[in-house]
């Protein structure tokens, strides 16, 4: 059993938009032998849009509090995130706390109000990196009990898992790890030229039509390349690309109805987990095309 400190983030809470990611991640980790120790009493990372209301220091302090709690509760154990925006916000905060003495000093003045302090040093990682680096492709392939043979999948990496930090060892323009994950389940990764294009992110809330136009192109590209399902590591991508299909069909006269799932859901299913273990009962666009493997 490998242990990590865990930051689930707000969208992974019960009854939140990425509850299906969280459920399938826990099932995936159980099969693989990973214990995720959630930081007790964590707060929001400030997300993609927190800069406008929060500015620099309040925004960075939010991640600093989580680091300080992680250190208090779990020492310097690696901190793992599953949400792209959380991981990005934490990586950014960690970098600035470590490299900018002024930021570190100010953050600690703020933290003192919560009787906390943090000087840096905890490594923040994405769960995808843990799978690749600490387990490896052979170990992931070895878990397969029900290969997803014949399933055509478009691997949609999105933005924030890929830029500005990205999964270690991958390129910004053509990261390959998601296609390799798809292939590791026995499925077929179709060519997907839109794999690192933007879904609109948090601007889906405010600039709905502009963002829907981006997602329309993402969906069309998947369909054109013969995908039966889209897979992503990012909860913002998953939400935007799945849940807005009805709206997009209204806006553009299209007829999209393609399931969008997480890599963790594909792994759980191919590793012999149930439909419920994979949280496939929590899809807004039903993933019936996966039923034959359950």
């Amino acid at each position: 059993m490998k242990e990590y400190t865990f930051f689930p983030g707000c969208s992974s809470e019960k009854n939140a938009s990425a509850a299906n990611m969280e459920h399938s991640v826990q099932a995936m980790c159980k099969i693989l032998g990973i214990q995720l120790n959630e930081i007790d009493d964590w707060n929001c990372c400030s997300a993609s849009i927190g800069y406008a209301g929060g500015g620099q220091l309040p925004r960075l302090s939010m991640s600093a509090r989580n680091f300080a709690l992680a250190q208090q509760q779990r020492g310097m154990t690696d901190l793992v995130a599953t949400c792209a925006a959380c991981w990005l916000a934490m990586r950014e905060a960690a970098e600035r706390i470590e490299h900018e003495p002024e930021v570190r000093a100010d953050v600690n003045v703020a933290l003192k109000e919560a009787n906390l302090s943090y000087e840096g040093g905890i490594k923040t990682r994405h769960l995808v990196e843990v799978l690749i680096e600490d387990f490896g492709w052979d170990a992931l392939r070895a878990k397969v009990k029900k290969p997803l043979t014949g399933l055509k999948v478009a691997g949609y990496v999105g933005c924030q898992t890929n830029r500005p930090f990205g999964i270690a060892g991958e390129s910004f323009e053509n990261p390959l790890y998601l296609d390799k994950m798809i292939e590791a389940t026995g499925a077929t990764a179709v060519p997907y030229p839109k794999k690192v294009a933007c879904c609109g992110g948090a601007l889906m809330f405010t600039e709905v039509e502009k963002s829907c136009a981006l997602v329309r192109d993402l969906l069309q590209c998947a369909v054109d390349n013969g995908a039966e399902v889209i897979v992503t590591p990012c909860p913002v991508c998953q939400l935007n690309v799945e849940v807005y299909q009805g709206k997009i069909n209204q806006l553009f006269g299209t007829n999209f109805n393609i399931p969008v799932v997480y890599y963790s859901q594909l792994f759980v299913l191919s590793w012999g987990g149930s439909w419920e273990d994979a949280a496939l009962n929590q899809q807004v666009v039903p993933a019936e095309v996966l039923r034959r493997f359950a």
């Binding site: 500015g55 220091l57 302090s61 509090r65 703020a110 109000e113 919560a114």
Partner: peptide
Amino acid sequence: GYAGFAAMIAKAQELE
């Protein structure tokens, strides 16, 4: 730990 969290944010906003 909301009381501490809120105090932290208030201090950070003051410095900001």
